[in-house]
């Protein structure tokens, strides 16, 4: 299972990098969103998958899955939401002001 998930992470990362490298700001944002998906899965699989029951002590099981990656990911999900929202709005405002989402056209003036 872990190998499969790691392969999935690889595919997601490659797709994310390709999107991030493209010229359109919208694709860049999609890329970052996919990137965070990939990272969440990566962290989770690093803790080992299906090694026990849900990390709730009420279950009174023999062993529990690793709770630490879960806590990390929970934080990461919320943060990545905030970041996605911010850059989405940034793109939106940039488009309003500049009339383009093409990064080539958004380059700064060269004299600085």
């Amino acid at each position: 299972m872990e190998t499969l998930i790691i392969l999935l992470v690889g595919v997601l990362t490659a797709v994310a990098i390709y999107l991030v490298l493209s010229k359109s700001l919208i694709r860049v944002i999609l890329g970052t969103a996919i990137f965070s998906h990939a990272v969440h899965l990566l962290i989770l699989s690093m803790g080992g998958l299906k090694k026990g029951t849900v990390p709730l002590l009420g279950e009174e099981a023999e062993s529990y899955v690793d709770a630490l990656p879960q806590a990390l990911i929970l934080t990461a999900i919320v943060i990545s939401f905030a970041v996605t929202a911010f850059i989405l709005v940034l793109a939106f405002r940039a488009y309003q002001e500049l009339g383009t989402d093409d990064l080539e056209e958004m380059r700064g003036v060269n004299d600085e």
Binding site: H40, L44, L49, K50, G52, T53, V54, P55, L56, V65, Q70, I73, L74, I77, V78
Partner: peptide
């Protein structure tokens, strides 16, 4: 599937 109910809800 990976026994992470909190994450699933949040996600």
């Amino acid at each position: 599937l990976f026994r992470a109910p909190d994450l699933a809800l949040t996600q």
